[in-house]
Simulated assay, not measured.
Amino acid sequence: MLRSSVSNFIRPQTKAFALRTAELSKAMYVLCETGDLRGAQEAFASAASAYGRIEFLRVGPLMEANRAERILFFPDRKGIGLRQIQQLLAEKDLAATTVPGLQGKSVALQGLGALEFVLFGAGFETIATSDGAFRCAYGAAIAKNLEQMASEIAASWADPEGIAKRLAQPDAAYADYRTSTESLEAVVGLVSHGIENIRDTRINPVIANADRKANPKQALFWRSGLTMAMLDANVEGLRALVELSSVVTDPALLAEITSAFDRAETAIGAVTLQIDQALADPEQAGALVDLVGATQDLQRLIGEDLSATLGLSVGFSSLDGD
């Protein structure tokens, strides 16, 4: 099942992210040359969804060189990253129009969040005009930076002597995966913590509760209208790893996990409006609450029940600082 996780999900999906970011980089070049904004926006959506399917793979190459934060700096609840992006656009710092220059700046300026603002945020309409030349050049540098990081991630997982081998064929001589139990704990932990991340950073801060009103501007990618598409990609990736890895061998438990994933996907599919409108609609806001419930069930089923079935101990998530 460990080899299946790598060959059936991790390698093809990291390669897909690399391909989508290469297309995004090309689309940004075309935008700056010809003004094709729609093509760049569509390429952004495809690249973002491709990342959404793998962003829970918080081991190895994604966690090296601070790539996870550089690819997607989120959440930004205090708006620090947003202010940095706005300041950079106002000052037109030419260093940010080259990949090396951009890589020397704040992580908040380097990835998908910054590029979303470039393509969909205040002033985006000017990007295909002479007044938007800096904005477009900055966006093109972000896309190239994303392409480089995605290529590095895919190459690392493709390396026959790299992390894929250590995860799929653990050995006592390795520093990270010494036994099959440690490898299984890593895989199951990635899924459990990925589900936790969906709930705690993507949904709960946005929906209303007893203490506060709904806050649509805390949603990821609200400007581009891709909030739900990203959640759909997250759940799709998590489900695919569980199913393609064949890690769940107990039929009854598999049926429960399948049902919980079905409920999560049904809830996501029920939200058809933009996130601000969905939160104001009782039925669609209720679907988001249902999604929280489905993620709670999934985390229990995978983080607790599956772990117990396999004799594993799934530790704290990276969100907890462990």
Rank of each mutant, 00 (worst) to 15 (best):
F316V: 10
I10F: 02
A68P: 06
D131M: 12
D171R: 06
F117K: 12
L220A: 12
D200M: 11
T179W: 07
F221Y: 15
P251R: 08
P75F: 05
A294N: 08
T14I: 07
R83I: 09
D322L: 10
R300D: 11
E125M: 05
D76I: 04
R300N: 10
L62R: 07
Q86C: 05
E125S: 12
I257E: 00
L112M: 15
T201W: 13
S130E: 14
A229F: 09
L31Q: 01
R11T: 14
E33P: 00
L94K: 12
P100V: 04
A65F: 14
F73K: 12
V191A: 03
D276M: 03
S49P: 03
K105N: 07
L62G: 04
A172E: 13
R77E: 13
Y29V: 13
V99R: 02
N66M: 13
K144T: 09
A280W: 01
F56N: 05
I195G: 01
R135S: 08
E161I: 02
L291Q: 07
L19M: 09
A186S: 14
G162R: 05
A43V: 00
A208D: 04
A175L: 14
T129Y: 06
T201E: 11
G162K: 03
E33T: 13
D290I: 01
V206C: 07
Q299R: 15
D171Q: 06
R53W: 01
C136W: 02
F134M: 08
I203N: 06
T129N: 06
D211N: 11
M63S: 11
L319E: 12
Q148W: 04
F117V: 13
A186M: 11
A95W: 05
F9K: 05
L24F: 09
D211L: 11
Q169S: 15
